[in-house]
Design a protein around this nucleic acid. Sequence first.
DNA 1: CCTGACCACTCGTCTATACGAGTATGGGTG
DNA 2: CACCCATACTCGTATAGACGAGTGGTCAGG
Lengths: 262, 262
Amino acid sequence: MAPLPSGVLGSLDSTSDRAVFRQIADQLREAIDKGRFKEGAKLPSESELVERFGVSRMTVRNALSVLQGEGLVHSEHGKGVFVRPRPPVRRLASDRFARRHRDQGKSAFTVEAEAAGSRPEVDNLQVKEERPTRDIATRLGEPRKVLARRRRYLLDGRPVEFAASFLPLDIARDTPIAQPNPGPGGIYARLEELGHRLDHFDEEVRARMPTPAEVKTLHLAAGVPVIHLVRTAYDTEGRAVEVCDTVMAADAYVLAYQLPAN
Amino acid sequence: MAPLPSGVLGSLDSTSDRAVFRQIADQLREAIDKGRFKEGAKLPSESELVERFGVSRMTVRNALSVLQGEGLVHSEHGKGVFVRPRPPVRRLASDRFARRHRDQGKSAFTVEAEAAGSRPEVDNLQVKEERPTRDIATRLGEPRKVLARRRRYLLDGRPVEFAASFLPLDIARDTPIAQPNPGPGGIYARLEELGHRLDHFDEEVRARMPTPAEVKTLHLAAGVPVIHLVRTAYDTEGRAVEVCDTVMAADAYVLAYQLPAN
DNA sequence: CCTGACCACTCGTCTATACGAGTATGGGTG
DNA sequence: CACCCATACTCGTATAGACGAGTGGTCAGG
């Protein structure tokens, strides 16, 4: 057992009314913030902290769970507790669906990932017809049935996002859009070929903690929220032609928008 | 002690390899999802759950802390654990800074809140000159000093957002912008009067768990992430004239953007 | 040299107990 | 009737102990 670096952690203030486990969490947080524990570094083990602070193990675990909830650290069974490294973030520009980006043979995700030096993958591809949920139906103008396209995106093997596109069946049925691979430029290029010239997109952005299912699909660590993005595509006649519902690991993304001042 | 409604919760599967506290969390989550515990309703107390499932109190607390981390419930000392009500969300439209919204005597926040039937407040107003951080300096074109305007926004007494605006001092010094109340239309109106006609805004959106300071400022419950928005305003000459750094309670907001298809 | 058993260390789960502190309620007292 | 206080409930904090399970190293034996 390597000795704890001296001076990294202070001592507890028994006169303080701040709970002991919070004081321990505070000290560890400060040490991490100041870089005394670097990204990916292992924190002292629970038993070391028990000894160091003279408290019981549950108190130490309580402190560590605070830091986990903040997304600062993550634990690995049998190994230790580590400072959570910040993964490279993918920047989503607001012009990413602009027509001029649509002439490639590959999907926008693939092109962009390769440009950034990452290995992109698409996963769980699923295309089927189904009854829309209440919300989707409202956004799409109450179609009876929709074509749903679901997929998961990974970068260097790490899942970062999954998405479901919904299109009114009268638009998408028996078109390349109903194929697993819709071809170069993606479904937006196909929509325009089918005569639905796109006018604009509406995007709604929310952030929240993931559901257990989302934790599983995106392999999310504790303390990582998700960004929930719902995009609706409108053609030049004002008809909603697609809704895309996307859930992203929040630590892997920054969304960038450009707004006119009018 | 009121008897537990029968049939709301099932029993544990001791043959399952799923941890007991997770099974309890699963059952409570399902009951909440299915509306068997409504928004704001009180869950069975810890001791009731201890009895109900025949486990120790720490196991029950562990299960409840899972749900807290998911933002599903919150506990109140001395009262109980409650299903977290979803507060009304404030919708931020991407045209909220458009020139046409700027002719009011009140701030955009105030106008919008009153229209939605809420009581708006602005708080902690602070205006001072300071040295920019590395990030702010980069975005503003390396000014030596900046004017910083900080404030907190509340709706019906609940803090929902705090923001700091930074402007290069050569633009803002000795102007109405350096006053606590910059006047009708806000600082964007003043900037234009000073000859900085606004061209567009860049917004970067991130989501993450709050720092302890942010928890305090926004009175955040456990399991509520924050949306971190950094907006840069550019004038028609391409100069960055303001950076606004905003942290919002994620459960109080949905951001709406409209993107052209080009 | 490789393999497998063992062991030490890690975190994960769970029990049982204790006391403190915040909240609500009801009943007794003034 | 109004107030205060005792009380019983709530969750918060902390201890001590036990066993399980994943990881990685050492070391003996093939």
